[in-house]
């Protein structure tokens, strides 16, 4: 963490010097938060990622080049596949978990009992694997932003939008599977509603389905980005005041926010999983 802060500070210095020549600028902050085509390894230069020509589908131009966030998503997926398959294999030897398996089991049992069973009920166990994947993927993506040279893939609207889209599909499919295609959309209107309000309620409910997915997208993105901006701003204060005396205070605060970010990484992964489970529960238990 200290090294991470040092890397930030070193970078800030360089960018502050640049911006000093060309007036005030906060572009160095965006440089750390936004997606880019290079992976920065600051004192040692940077790695340029491969870039492909954009693909044309219909009237859309889609750029499928590998970017920083894509790289970190793949890294996270790879780590999860390796670590979780090692853990799964360890249960074949003995039922009692040891070491790493013990740590993972805490999370798995927590998601099963506290999220899926308590919010959705027994019906939710069919979808348990989705919630587990979602939780571990988001958690590790969030945590990767806190280590030096890492980037938060979940601090990208496209990534969180993709995750929310998968959750949206699950919410619809879970409802359709339980009540049937027509039954599900009919069931959106609560029972005992007067006939003249029913169409209005249907519209409200139907739009609400999209609003929920959109809120999931923005919530995760905003929370992950906000923390990074706060840390960078605190360090940036040193260069705005142009005084070393500010450094101890702003570094102390930055370390505090960094620690808080670890908590936020867990909480946001939990909230995303929890709210997805809640919405799946709402579409399964229609009233």
């Amino acid at each position: 963490m200290w090294i991470g802060n040092l890397a930030f500070a070193a970078d800030t210095l360089k960018h502050a010097e640049n911006s000093h020549a060309g007036g005030e600028s906060s572009s160095w902050m965006l440089h750390h938060i936004s997606d880019s085509r290079t992976i920065d390894l600051e004192p040692f230069g940077h790695i340029t990622l491969p870039q492909f020509p954009p693909i044309r589908i219909g009237g859309l131009e889609i750029d499928l080049s590998i970017t920083k966030h894509v790289f970190f998503m793949w890294l996270v997926s790879l780590i999860l596949i390796i670590v979780l398959s090692i853990v799964a294999r360890s249960y074949k030897k003995q039922i009692v978990p040891h070491g790493l398996a013990n740590l993972i089991e805490v999370f798995v049992v927590f998601i099963r009992d506290e999220i899926v069973l308590s919010v959705i009920g027994k019906d939710g166990l069919k979808y348990l694997h989705y919630f587990l994947t979602l939780f571990f993927f988001i958690l590790l993506c969030n945590l990767f932003g806190l280590i030096p040279y890492g980037a938060t893939a979940t601090g990208n609207l496209a990534v969180t939008g993709g995750l929310a889209f998968l959750s949206f599909i699950l919410i619809q499919l879970a409802g359709i599977r339980k009540h049937g295609l027509i039954g599900y959309y009919k069931g959106l209107v609560p029972h005992g509603v007067p006939a003249f309000v029913a169409p209005l309620m249907f519209i409200v409910e139907f739009l609400g389905l999209f609003a929920k997915a959109f809120a999931l997208t923005v919530r995760l993105f905003a929370n992950m980005t906000a923390g990074h901006i706060v840390i960078l701003s605190l360090i940036g204060l040193i260069f705005i005041f142009k005084s070393v005396l500010v450094a101890p205070v702003s570094i102390a605060f930055a370390v505090f926010i960094n620690l808080l970010e670890i908590l936020v990484a867990f909480i946001q992964a939990y909230i995303f999983t929890m709210l997805t489970a809640l919405f799946v529960g709402l579409s399964i238990h229609q009233h």
Binding site: A215, V218, R219, I271, M274, L275
Partner: peptide, 8 residues
């Protein structure tokens, strides 16, 4: 979960 709903 409630803190998430506010933003929603």
């Amino acid at each position: 979960p409630y803190s998430g709903l506010g933003l929603q």
